[in-house]
Amino acid sequence: MSTLTVTAPPRRTPWRLRQSSVIPGFGLTLGFTLTYFSLIILVPLIFLVLRATGQGPGVFWAAATDPRVLGALRVSFLTALFAAVVNVIFGTLIAWVLVRYRFPGRRLLDAMVDLPFALPTAVAGVALTAIYAPNGFVGALLTPFGIRIAYTPTGIIIAMIFIGLPFVVRTIQPILEEVSREVEEVSATLGANRFQTITRVVLPSLTPAILTGFALAFARAVGEYGSVIFIAGNIPFVSEIAPLLIVIRLEEFNYTGAAVIATVMLLISFALLFAINLIQAWSRARYGYGN
């Protein structure tokens, strides 16, 4: 009879789905989240993929590798990437100006940043086309130099920059506010000149926010339709974007073809966004942002 064991072996707490916590409503909110998520995002996407692959991998592959589809995908992703890069550079600059300086009209400028969010994108497209068309306000200035913007991929990029800008500004702004002035001041006292302070201190600490802004602007640009089709000219292989090709396929009653393009776009976008998220998680863990 040696039931009187004094030192119990260290017991591991069994893993449980639910940690007891004082924050209420875990079951309810998680349940709601999953249901909502399924209804709004997951189910439609599953049906999309089913539709695309319903006629077998052969059909899917043939539709996905159609030269015109590949061309449209290339145009879409390359222009979106380019636009996102431009947006990150100038969006960071704008966020910087809005956060760090006080000047008359700052609030107005701040409010105007959101306009691309609110404007119907077709309106933006029409307006941009009017300006950048060869006989337009800006287009007429560039035509003598042989530069064309409307009806070329450059036009697509400009439309995408327009609609993506607020995403970058609005993600970087709050983080920049959090990066204290003191960090910049201390850098100056240590002898760093302004350029060194920006490149070695400010920008690296903004990296996570810049990545988020990039991801959002990029995702928005890839999915953009309304503003782009007005300015793009929509020449297959040159300035025809994938979302437009999807609409064309639909008008041809080629629903499978449309679903295939959509699925391929979905996969590429998801892979890119997921990669960006991983980089962010890694940098957060390292630098301890958000805690």
Partner: peptide, 10 residues
């Protein structure tokens, strides 16, 4: 500084 102002990414 009072709140250290260390460079968090270094």
């Amino acid at each position: 500084f009072q709140h250290y102002a260390l460079f968090r990414h270094m």
